[in-house]
Amino acid sequence: ELREAFRLYDKEGNGYISTDVMREILAELDETLSSEDLDAMIDEIDADGSGTVDFEEFMGVMT
């Protein structure tokens, strides 16, 4: 189920989504998050600083 959700956002099928897209997902899930909260969450999610979120990083957030 998580893989299907990931595929919805990984429109190009390249195995990752951008941190911008991940930020939008988080904002949709919790509309009360401030910009600073979102920045901090993205920094934590994208631990390797690649600017992308792969499936493993995505799973870590969603579980």
Rank of each mutant, 00 (worst) to 15 (best):
E1Y: 13
E1W: 13
E1R: 11
E1S: 14
R3I: 13
E4I: 04
E4D: 11
A5T: 14
A5G: 07
F6I: 03
R7A: 15
R7N: 15
L8F: 13
L8D: 09
Y9A: 09
Y9V: 05
E12D: 11
E12Y: 06
E12A: 09
G13C: 08
G13L: 06
G13Y: 03
N14P: 01
Y16L: 05
Y16S: 07
T19Q: 03
T19M: 11
D20M: 11
D20E: 14
D20A: 12
V21K: 13
V21H: 10
R23P: 00
R23L: 04
E24K: 14
E24H: 10
E24F: 10
E24P: 01
I25F: 08
I25Y: 05
L26M: 06
L26C: 02
L26D: 00
L26G: 00
A27H: 12
L29K: 08
L29H: 11
T32I: 04
T32A: 08
L33V: 04
S34N: 10
S34F: 04
S35D: 14
S35Y: 08
S35G: 11
E36Y: 09
E36N: 09
D37K: 10
D37W: 08
D39F: 05
D39L: 06
A40C: 11
A40W: 07
I42L: 11
I42F: 07
D43T: 12
D43R: 15
E44I: 12
I45S: 03
D46I: 04
A47W: 12
D48Q: 08
D48I: 07
D48F: 07
S50R: 11
S50E: 05
G51Y: 03
T52F: 10
V53N: 00
V53H: 01
D54G: 15
D54T: 15
D54C: 09
D54K: 10
E56G: 08
E56D: 11
E57C: 14
F58Y: 08
M59Q: 09
M59W: 09
G60M: 15
G60T: 15
V61N: 03
V61W: 14
M62T: 03
M62K: 02
T63D: 07
T63S: 10
T63Q: 11
